[in-house]
């Protein structure tokens, strides 16, 4: 395909659309297939957990940092887990330097909601002592190469990062924080395994995991986060509209594909044992 430009050529648009109607995609995938996923974990020595995830040519590197702070007064025994995303100008000629734009905020928000509403990280477990000290976890995602569907890669990389976590365990002794020498690992932190699946829609054709040209020409996308047995968040973006039947069909598909993906990825293999 042609090198990425702001404008997608009319013939490329036609080509993709016509082939999608015949259930053909240029990379040879079926409508409900992902590109190849590869995962490396604990790649950053300075981070308390990290993952380097590629989906086709899309690549995101994510790291976990922590801080200890005073809890919010209305939630005295709950820690905080935040997600940030940055679209590095390395990753695409379409990305510009500067403060986060809509696309990076959407990426961070959708991944964040997938984790939050699935009760993936139980914030009560991040409490060291109520009213005094709680953990603040920062999951920071950096996009290294953009070839479509950042959200799904972001979701997998955030989850893998949490699973590979090794956050020093602290406790309060006489009003002072001391470190026990042990670590909070993925098993302690991760309660549910949310995955987010994104579909594109062009005309009336819906397909999983849009590649870059597909994403740039599609009318809209829908991202659905699921755990093993429930749907936890949905985000529709773009101008496409979806019928009730389509949404029901997608919800069912997402549960199915999500279950299989969760099994295939086997993310628990990325747990890190420190001491």
């Amino acid at each position: 395909m042609m090198k990425i430009k702001r404008v997608i050529s009319a013939i490329e648009k036609n080509y993709i659309t016509q082939n999608l109607r015949k259930e053909e995609r240029f990379d040879g995938r079926g409508l409900w297939e992902y590109r190849d996923i590869s995962i490396k974990h604990d790649v950053i020595a300075s981070a308390e957990g990290s993952a380097d995830v590629s989906l086709g040519k899309t690549r995101i590197m994510t790291g976990l940092k922590y801080d200890v702070g005073v809890p919010f007064p209305d939630l005295p025994d709950e820690g905080v887990c935040t997600v940030m995303a940055e679209l590095l100008p390395i990753a695409s000629p379409l990305f510009e330097r500067g403060p986060p734009d809509e696309q990076s905020i959407e990426l961070a928000r959708v991944v964040d909601r997938g984790i939050r509403h699935a009760d993936c990280v139980q914030t009560k477990k991040l409490c060291i002592e109520a009213n005094k000290a709680v953990y603040i976890l920062f999951i920071d995602m950096y996009v290294l190469n953009y070839a479509g569907n950042l959200i799904d890669v972001g979701g997998i990389s955030a989850l893998t990062t949490l699973i590979s976590a090794h956050v020093p365990e602290g406790k309060m002794e006489d009003g002072k924080l001391v470190w026990t020498g042990k670590y909070l690992d993925g098993e302690y932190l991760v309660n549910e395994m949310p995955l987010v699946l994104t579909y594109g829609k062009i005309d009336n054709v819906i397909f999983l995991d849009p590649s870059l040209p597909e994403e740039l020409i599609c009318d809209g996308k829908i991202s659905i986060s699921v755990t093993e047995d429930s749907i936890t968040s949905i985000q529709k973006s773009g101008t496409a509209t979806f019928s009730f039947d389509e949404i029901n069909m997608l919800a069912k598909k997402t549960m199915e594909i999500g279950k299989k993906l969760r099994k295939d990825l086997n993310l628990w293999q990325y747990k890190v044992n420190y001491k």
Partner: peptide, 16 residues
Amino acid sequence: FYRMTTYSVFERKRPA
């Protein structure tokens, strides 16, 4: 443009 990620250092760096 030389940049560091927030998690590249011991104490989380500010994103800007």
